[in-house]
Amino acid sequence: MFDQLKHHYSHAISSFNLPVERQFIVSFPEKENGQLILDKSLLSDQEISLLRALFQVIEGHIPLHNSQDQKFYELLIEKKEMNTEGYLYFPIRCIHFSVLGDVGDRSDFSEAMKGLFPASLSLVWKTATDGFLLQQVDSEMDESIALESIVDTIASDFYVKVSLYVGSSVPDTSSLIQQYDWENKAYSLVKRTHPSRSYFIEQDVTTYLLLDDASPDTIQFILSMLDPVRDDRSLLQSVKTYLECNMNTSLAAKKMFMHRNTLQYRVDKFIEKTSIDIKQFPNAVAVYFMLLSFNSLKNE
C-alpha cells in the first residue's frame, strides 16, 4: 500500500523541506521509514478526507509549544535575534529526535523524554514528527541510561520507533545556533542513509557521513584488515566498547558487565590476531572506523 501510494503521489517526499503548514504526512508505523510527506496544497479536499479516513495521518502543524519552547523555536528554527540571558544556561547540547508513529499526547512524550534526559530545559517540535531537546550539561550529569535503553523504553511506552542523535555541548548562544544547524543537517542525512540505526552520538555522524561516501570496494578493502577476527562478534563488540570508552579498560569492562581482566585479554587477543595495536590513538581511530563500516555493512 505504501509503495502504491508513493507511486500515485509522485510529489511525495521523504524529507521535511516543505513548509510545515503544507506538510500532510501519511504514516505507516509498522514500516521502516514509513512516512509519506505530501504537499497539502496539491491535494483536493476529497483526497484529504479519503486519506484521513483510510490512513494514520499527521497534519503538518507544529505541536503546541509553551512560552519557553516557543523562544527556543524562534531562536534556532526561525533564527530570530534575542537576548538569551536568564533562560539559557551553558554548556548546553541538543538531543535531536525523530519519531515514527503517533506518540499520542505530546505532553506525555515530552515528560518522558525530559525524564530520560535529565536537566532538559525544553522539548521543541520542529515538525510533526521531528524535534529536539535542549539539555543543560554539567560535570555531575548522570549518563548511566544508555541510549538504546531510552529508545526501547519509549518504544514500550509509546509503541513508536524513535531515533536519537545526541549532539555536542556548546558554551554560548552563537555556538549553539551554529552547532544546531550543522547537527540538524548531518542528522537528516545519516537518518536517511542509516534508517536501521536507532541512535547516533556526537561526532559519529561525521564518521557515517564519510563512510557513506566511500565505495563498497574501498570499505571491503579496509575491512580485510579485520579478517582474522571478523567472525568473532563478541571480540569485536568488546573492542568497540573499549574504544568508545576512550580505551579505558575498567570503564569498558563495567559497561560490558565483565571482569577487567577478561576485557584486557580480549583487547590483547585482538592486537595479537590483527597486529593492530589499538592502544595507540591513531590505530584506535582507524579500527573504530573499520568497526563502524563493518556494522553499517552488516546493517545494509
Binding site: 508513529g101 541510561i145 526501547d152 509509546f158 513508536v160
Partner: peptide, 15 residues
C-alpha cells in the same frame, strides 16, 4: 498499529 495490538514489551535494554 502497535499500540492497538494489546501487547506489552520488556526489552533487554530496559530503562
Amino acid at each position: 498499529a502497535p499500540k492497538d495490538r494489546n501487547i506489552a514489551m520488556v526489552f533487554q535494554n530496559y530503562a
